[in-house]
């Protein structure tokens, strides 16, 4: 049965003390993390993205890497590069920040397309080939990318094909008045986060990831429900392109993770339905240019028309 799902509750409760009002974002991040996916956070600056990433990394005792994207960022700044070592007379490979368990890529839309695609390739393949040599990424490997939805000047928005590589796209949003009052009273807890004792170790995480993948049951009924949703997005009048096959895999893996978090070893339709607004809208190519909110509304109204299997 499920061995570690109790630990996840513990982590969420524990971290909630440091991340006021970000419990939902934290939960979604963890679901993405345990379903071996990557997360895109679309939000204004200063709302706690970095704190979230640090909290996750520290509570699992994982290494955190951070890439601040600018238009002059080069692919090698991410992957690393070979440098000539005079003493040995050879080229030595210096690993870039991507060689960490958790990588925070800030403002990914400010990087040039070339750099973006290099990053996204690493995310998909979980390996990088430099000068003919292949380097595997660490396990677990989790990328949290952020982008600023408002700043348009001098940015390179990610095309839908690139967005599809992110398992979920979430936003943290402003904290409630109460939460922010709490933050004001006690000050930022960023410093404390660095000293967190890990609750789970690397091996535990890999076990949980494997259990989610192998032990959570997806019945045919629920699979059909997923495919119903997929079909609806593909035949919708607002959409040019629906959910991709990769998208289907993302939906099922996140649903499994969510089921696991709820202490179940089987997926119920709600697991899919509740995550739909994070897993689906960014994958769909709409006919018109729509804002994020409208996309979400269209997808949700689509799902409301699909009957849930019981």
């Amino acid at each position: 049965m499920l061995s570690k799902n109790q630990a996840i509750d513990t982590i969420i409760n524990y971290l909630s003390n440091y991340l006021h009002g970000k419990t939902k974002a934290l939960r979604l991040s963890l679901i993405t993390f345990f379903s071996k996916g990557h997360l895109l956070i679309e939000d204004l600056p200063g709302l706690g993205k970095t704190t979230l990433a640090i909290a996750i990394a520290k509570s699992f005792g994982l290494q955190l890497g951070r890439i601040q994207c600018t238009s002059d960022l080069l692919p090698s700044d991410i992957t690393g590069l070979s440098i000539y070592n005079k003493a040995l007379g050879t080229f030595e490979f210096h690993k870039g920040p991507i060689f960490n368990n958790i990588v925070l890529v800030d403002e990914i839309n400010r990087a040039t397309p070339k750099t973006q695609s290099a990053l996204l390739e690493v995310m998909g393949e979980k390996q990088v080939t430099i000068e003919g040599k292949t380097y595997k990424m660490n396990k677990p490997f989790f990328v949290i990318a952020t982008q600023n939805p408002i700043e348009q000047f001098g940015t390179f928005p990610l095309p839908e094909s690139q967005l599809d590589r992110f398992t979920m796209k979430i936003s943290i949003g402003y904290g409630s008045r109460l939460d922010e009052m709490q933050i004001l009273k006690s000050g930022s807890k960023r410093e404390e986060l660095y000293h967190l004792e890990p609750i789970l170790n690397k091996d535990d995480i890999l076990v949980i990831q494997q259990e989610i993948q192998d032990k959570v049951y997806l019945s045919e009924k629920v699979l059909n429900y997923i495919l119903d949703i997929v079909e609806a997005t593909r035949n919708n009048k607002f959409c040019i392109g629906g959910i991709s096959t990769r998208g289907i895999l993302a939906i099922s893996s996140t649903a499994k993770a969510k089921a696991y978090f709820s202490g179940r070893d089987f997926v119920i339709p709600e697991d899919i339905k509740e995550l739909a607004e994070y897993t689906i809208p960014h994958r769909i190519i709409f006919k018109e240019e729509l804002d994020t909110l409208t996309k979400k509304e269209i997808v949700l109204s689509l799902i409301e028309k699909i009957s849930v299997p019981v």
Partner: peptide, 8 residues
């Protein structure tokens, strides 16, 4: 409703 899950 038809579009509701049981828990929902």
């Amino acid at each position: 409703n038809k579009n509701e899950g049981l828990e929902e």
